[in-house]
Amino acid sequence: MKRSLNWIYFALAVLILIAVLVYIQSAMKANEAAVSKPRPTSKASALDVSVVAVRAAEHSASIQAVGVANANQNLLLTTQISGEVIELSPSFEVGEQIKKGQVLLRLKNISTQADLARAKNTLANAELTLKEEQRQADQANAEWRAAGLSGDPASDLVLRAPQLAAAKTDLSAAQAALALAQDNVKQLTIRAPFDAIVVSKDVALGAYLNSNTQVATLYSTDQVVVELQLSLLDWQKLPSADRMLKNHWPAQVNSVNGSDTWQGYVKQAGLHVDSNSGLRSLFVAVDTPLQQSPELIPGSFVKVQLAGASLKNLWQLPNSALSQKSEIWYVDQDNRLANFDATPKFVDQEFVYIEVPERLRETPHQVLIQPYNSYLKGMLVNPQERGKP
């Protein structure tokens, strides 16, 4: 009886195990069928992107730089000879404007006046000696011909040729000495060499000045020149130096605070690059700065703006349109994303200027304002133009 019960239990266990295996196998098949069953396709959704509509056009770069408006000429005026200051012009004061040739001060030097008198006397004697020597030479030649002698005399002293030559040389020396003495006397009166501003006055009435003593610092008023230090990249944006110089390329000169503006032009282009900074100079001039309204005072700090060369087939885009990978993303005719690698031709504070590939030049395009690294080519998008709903 006991053995029969054991067999019954064993048979029940086997049946339960078989039932469990069958259940598991059927569940797995049902799951596989559910997984392999094709899912219904869903309609692709378009991504909203902000774009700006652009067309290839011609644009000019703009160069901005700062500098100092220096006087065209800056002179330390000095004495040429020594003397006592006996007169100062009322206009010879710091801050005054003076004209070319205007007397600033006068010196007294008795020795210089005496040198002039001696030079005049020496010249008069030299002229007299030459006349006497010329007369004697003419007489010697006449006597030689009257004697009926043929040929030349054994010595040129007979016809007084050396004596006449010496007299002529003495006259030339006397004339040069007189010119020097006259110039020294002229230098006793010190005049303005050009229209200028008196920046410093370094003499006083009654002072005795040696030669080469500084008496004033003068700044010319005909022109101020601003030296701009430009990088080679900035130079690439500009026309050639020859073209700028030939056409007096215009430049807008602004005060540092931007309230005042003057019109200038390119005067000169530096012909070397600084080996330390890698910069090359460009010189911008403003004529008659003190006659402008308002005046452009020498020594002022200014900002200069120059128009660069014009380039065709460019897109003017917001600075943000250039991706971190230097790519421009745009929307194609199927409203899908496309891109191309780009190197800006030039940039300013607001825009980046990109050369348009030839295939995109004929028609306007929508360019993404803010492309992200997650964007992929061919993505379906819904372009939203800036400023439009």
Rank of each mutant, 00 (worst) to 15 (best):
L271I: 13
L245W: 02
V381W: 01
D195S: 09
W329P: 00
M1C: 11
S231I: 05
G95Q: 02
F301L: 14
I297H: 13
N319P: 09
K120V: 05
E385V: 15
L104M: 09
I8S: 11
P250D: 07
A53V: 15
D334T: 13
A251L: 05
S277W: 03
P250V: 07
R361I: 07
D274M: 04
V22L: 13
H272R: 15
A19V: 02
L128E: 14
K388A: 15
T112G: 08
L77G: 01
P364H: 10
S91G: 12
V158I: 15
Y23E: 06
V94I: 08
T363G: 08
A342L: 09
N210I: 04
S155W: 06
G83F: 07
A307F: 04
L317H: 02
L164W: 00
L296P: 02
I297P: 06
F346Q: 01
A216H: 07
D138W: 06
V20S: 03
N382H: 13
V85G: 00
G378C: 10
I16K: 01
A192T: 02
P294E: 03
Q139R: 15
K108V: 03
L17D: 01
G308K: 09
Q182V: 04
R336V: 09
S155A: 11
A137R: 11
K131P: 01
I16H: 00
E58T: 15
K325Y: 11
L337H: 01
D152M: 11
L104S: 03
A44E: 10
S150W: 04
L15W: 05
S259M: 10
N254Q: 14
G387H: 08
W249L: 00
T189H: 06
Y265F: 14
L188D: 06
K2R: 12
Q223H: 00
E127Y: 06
S323C: 05
F194H: 05
L380F: 02
N319D: 13
R39Q: 13
I18M: 10
F340T: 04
N72T: 00
T343H: 12
H248I: 08
I354H: 02
G101M: 00
I328E: 10
S42N: 11
Q316R: 13
V286C: 07
S36G: 08
L15Y: 10
S42P: 02
A204W: 10
A216E: 05
S150T: 09
A174E: 01
L230S: 03
V284Q: 03
Q291M: 10
D138F: 08
P90G: 10
F340V: 05
A65M: 09
E84F: 01
N339G: 04
N70A: 14
N74Y: 08
R118V: 11
Y375L: 13
Q229R: 15
A126G: 06
D332P: 01
A179D: 13
N247G: 01
E96Q: 12
Q316S: 13
Q305C: 06
N72M: 09
N72A: 15
W262F: 01
Q229N: 15
A176P: 03
P250A: 04
R39F: 08
E362N: 11
A61K: 07
A71H: 01
L12M: 07
